[in-house]
Design a protein around this nucleic acid. Structure first.
Lengths: 253, 253
DNA sequence: GAGTGGTCTAGACCACGTC
DNA sequence: ACGTGGTCTAGACCACTCA
């Protein structure tokens, strides 16, 4: 009969109390205490708290209790022209510079596979579904904690026999190498989706429940017209509580 | 003792069966059937199914069962220069053209409030926290279903007494009007975050659980240097299963 | 009416973290 | 040892949908 389920009401009430700053120390009362306060069974309270967890509003720590998390996200500068401007003093790649400029310590672990790419990638690249790639997986760390997953797909037909195929960090970066080989990328196509992380992503990145990921995909083309060919695809998995994506643009009209 | 909770195992198994295409018709067995199949109580099965719902993998329909949803997202073209290129034949604003070009029917409902803006907006605009704005709320529909929420903040100090203050659709659009008033926006700052929707957003947009929203914020400035002043902030709430954000870029190096 | 998911209770045992 | 959240059971009643 109630307009709203008991646990929904409790969830809404808790949410309001949190926004009002009632739990300024970031710690909530225990499930059993809340059960007494609201006159509900522990499982009903768990329903309310579980809802807030799934929205990323609170976090549970086993053996301790529930707490209100707080993070200050890093900025992921996605603007191509901005990047180009600063490429002169870039090291491994511009990502390192970006993170360092925000006062954090970047690092990465690289692995290279060889094989085909997911269907959505080959579609975006306008290549055969069974085209072969060198797949450069980079697990990127900030302050020694896994912070993002970056996967780059380089077509074998273009880069067989080049350093891009090899499992080692490249100096200068692969984009510069590709340009020197005759495959510059004057045109970029960026595509941003958001979803909940897969089980693997959640585990690798140590993510809390209720936090989505950005999926930032970049395709590079050799030219601006129909004769252009795709140089690479890069897919970045960015936990949404750790990254804000920023584009700086100049409208040219 | 088990490495993984019972309901986690069941969730993982169901997930695998879904990926394998076992439920090609999109319908899952009932909770009670699954309970018998896995030899678990109904509440344990509900735990497994609930996890998949919270990841946006399945959806429950009261009185019917669980199903695997499928949507084909629209493309949200965010590139400023691309927009500028097509602005000549734009109608109300470029969003309508974009949606129409994808074979869908756009419409919107506008309301205008007057007041202050959230703290994060005034910070981005580099204005006082209690600065006054005309706040133009647009609930945007696609094929007559609410599909996105777009809120624009226009500083009163610039636009008092202009049509931008009034509660009516503007022809040409507000950006053109602002430019004609001496406030063009040659520089744009875009910022993209992702999070789970608030209760209000979820209700207004009719969203399923487990689906995040993109928050696309655009700030327009009158110039490229330090003397530039902020013209407006626009915040778009885009359900992630309905929108992909796309930027087309030309690297100018 | 029969089947579905939605909710809630009461109680049990477990693993984890602090004291 | 104690309190915390994590899990699971068994059973109950409800509202909704479809035949």
């Amino acid at each position: 009969m109630p307009l709203q389920a008991r646990y929904e009401q409790i969830a809404a009430d808790l949410r309001a109390r949190i926004s009002a700053g009632e739990f300024a120390d970031g710690k909530l009362p225990s499930e059993r205490e809340l059960g007494e306060h609201y006159g509900a069974s522990r499982n009903t309270i768990r329903g309310a708290l579980g809802q807030l967890v799934n929205l990323g509003i609170i976090r549970s720590v086993k053996g301790l209790g529930y707490e209100v998390p707080s993070r200050t996200p890093l900025i992921y500068y996605a603007t191509a022209s901005e990047k180009a401007k600063r490429r002169s003093n870039a090291e491994l790649d511009i990502w390192f510079t970006d993170v360092r400029e925000q006062g954090r310590v970047p690092s990465q672990r690289l692995t290279v596979r060889h094989g085909s790419a997911p269907a959505d990638i080959t579609t975006l690249l306008n290549l055969d579904p069974d085209a072969e790639f060198a797949i450069r997986d980079r697990l990127r760390y900030v302050d020694d904690e896994p912070w993002a997953i970056s996967t780059a797909y380089w077509p074998k037909v273009l880069f067989a026999g080049t350093p891009i195929m090899e499992e080692r960090d490249l100096h200068p970066g692969p984009n510069r190498i590709a340009a020197d080989l005759g495959y510059p990328q004057p045109r970029l196509h960026d595509r941003i989706t958001a979803r909940m992380p897969t089980a693997d992503e959640s585990r690798i990145l140590g993510m809390d429940p209720g936090i989505p990921v950005h999926v930032h995909t970049r395709i590079g083309w050799t030219g601006l017209d129909d004769t252009a060919i795709p140089v690479r695809a890069t897919v970045n998995i960015l936990p949404a509580d750790r990254w804000i994506i920023v584009y700086e643009e100049r409208a040219d009209d």
